[in-house]
């Protein structure tokens, strides 16, 4: 293709634009990003687009296989479960539970983690050292065990598992914020603004956060795929979403008893979880790749 301009462009893209340019380069990442957006749309519009209610029992259509099978029925595209509930509707509404809630969970723990992390980065001495070790202890407890303990304190239920997962995810954000802020504080440009008389908080707000935001986002995508798996795992173990809710993990657990007569009730929710985790991981992968490329340039 002929180039219109022989000179390099004058305008200089913002860091985020640069990131986006590097990010969208590999086609796989773009597909993953597309899937991610698709899931967000599904989660938001779940109630509008799902053909039936997720708890409506169609008692004349019990255990209907997906439509492509011989006994299938086109009005129930992905079949029904043992109570005659439409699998497609349940999967779509499950998107807003498993996937949608994982985003909320990550944003909440990101916010809390960043606040604690930056505060701890500004303190030093015994308090800071204690916090450091405390976080190490928390990080070395298996996340599921920690979630189970929090669920045991709060009692089972979807809302409580969300709190549990938020609390499980906070330490890693504290950890990464703390390290990133410390690292940035050691740099010269911070020293420069400090010499200008800027307060620590002001430095944080204007100098440091813009520089660590991508690191946080990349950690957030990692945390999100963990959050999806944790929400689903707790649902699967019967500690999360209460019984009629179409949360994917809980749906899968419900399907296990039907596994040998209606395998789609196990395959489909599992695929949905896999799909959303892969999409999230692809976005995260692309993000880290883009960051690396930008750093190298």
């Amino acid at each position: 293709m002929a180039r219109d301009k022989i000179y390099q462009e004058e305008e200089f893209p913002t860091p985020l634009m640069q990131l986006w340019h590097n990010f969208k380069e590999p086609p796989v990442v773009l597909i993953g990003f597309g899937c991610f957006l698709f899931l967000i749309v599904l989660a938001v519009l779940a109630n509008v687009i799902s053909p039936y209610s997720s708890v409506e029992n169609h008692l004349d259509h019990l255990l209907l296989p997906p439509a492509w099978s011989d006994e299938g029925n086109v009005s129930f595209l992905l079949g029904t479960d043992n109570l005659g509930r439409d699998m497609l509707s349940r999967l779509i509404q499950g998107t807003s539970l498993t996937f949608g809630l994982s985003i909320i969970v990550v944003i909440a723990s990101l916010a809390i983690g960043v606040v604690i992390g930056s505060l701890s980065a500004l303190t030093s001495g015994i308090k800071s050292s204690f916090l450091n070790h405390f976080l190490d202890v928390i990080l070395s407890i298996p996340s599921l065990l920690l979630a189970i303990i929090i669920v045991a304190i709060l009692g089972p239920g979807l809302e409580n598992t969300l709190w549990a997962i938020i609390m499980v995810l906070i330490p890693q954000f504290v950890h990464i914020t703390r390290n990133a802020v410390r690292e940035e504080f050691a740099k010269d440009y911070v020293l420069a603004s400090r010499l200008d008389g800027a307060s620590s908080l002001r430095i944080l707000r204007y100098s440091i956060f813009p520089n660590i935001i991508e690191k946080l986002i990349s950690q957030a995508t990692l945390a999100q795929s963990a959050a999806i798996l944790d929400i689903a795992a707790l649902g699967f173990l019967g500690l999360g979403a209460p019984i009629p809710m179409p949360e994917w993990g809980a749906m899968l657990a419900n399907g296990i008893d039907l596994f040998y007569i209606a395998p789609w009730t196990v395959y489909l929710p599992g695929l949905a979880i896999l799909f959303s985790v892969v999409a999230t991981n692809l976005v995260g992968e692309g993000m880290r790749h883009a960051l690396k490329v930008r750093k190298e340039n």
Binding site: V55, N57, N82
Partner: peptide
């Protein structure tokens, strides 16, 4: 019983 409970719930 759990499935039965769900039906009764509905």
């Amino acid at each position: 019983a759990v499935t039965m409970a769900k039906l009764i719930q509905a």
